[in-house]
Amino acid sequence: MSQWKNFSKGFFKENAVFVLFLGLCPTLGVTTSAINGMGMGLATTFVLVMSNLVVSLVKSQIPDKVRIPSFIVIIASFVTMVELLMQAYVPALFEQLGLFIPLIVVNCIVLGRAEAFASKNNVFSSIIDGFGMGLGFAMALTILGGVREILGSGTIFGLNLHLFPLDADGNPTTMIVFVLAPGAFIALGYLIVLINKINKKSAK
């Protein structure tokens, strides 16, 4: 498999959210705005790349029977690092994502890639795989967050788009359901339809 294919599979063909349906808990939870989705996606990307790198480095040293606990310790260490660094240098974003950052540990994408890819491939391919899957996840979260933010708050990345008519108090009459939990499912459902259509077309 060429490295380019290895990298780009995370975006469409094997996109974690839209095609594999992995990691849906943070996906649905944090994507109330585009910036939140992007922050979560980039934090996950960092963890994915670093854990893929380390797992592929030490894979021959780890006995088979303890590989899952070993991977979990490696992943959890990187997640804690992200948590501390975000808390220190981007406290505003940390406040928004706070609860979901520790949950990256149990994000099935991270452990899934460590188990299915990094423990079987060389270091370079594993890093590329981590970047591809991570950025694909970040892309999915940013798109979903963007759609929900535009429809639910009438803004994108905090910028007012002036799409919705104002009510008597001067507030825009947006579709609030999209920033609530049900809106996440609705928006994700339609995005999956769209991505499936694109994937089917390109497969022909």
């Binding site: 030490v58 021959s60 040293q61 780890i62 006995p63 088979d64 029977k65 303890v66 606990p69 070993s70 310790v73 490696i74 959890a76 260490s77 804690t80 690092m81």
Partner: peptide
């Protein structure tokens, strides 16, 4: 080659990994 899953190997591997992880954190 992959290390054998003997008791000693498993204990040592986990010990090393947790030690390095806790030092870094």
């Amino acid at each position: 080659a992959k290390r054998e899953s003997s008791f000693l190997n498993m204990v040592l591997t986990l010990l090393m990994i947790t030690f390095i992880a806790s030092a870094a954190l």
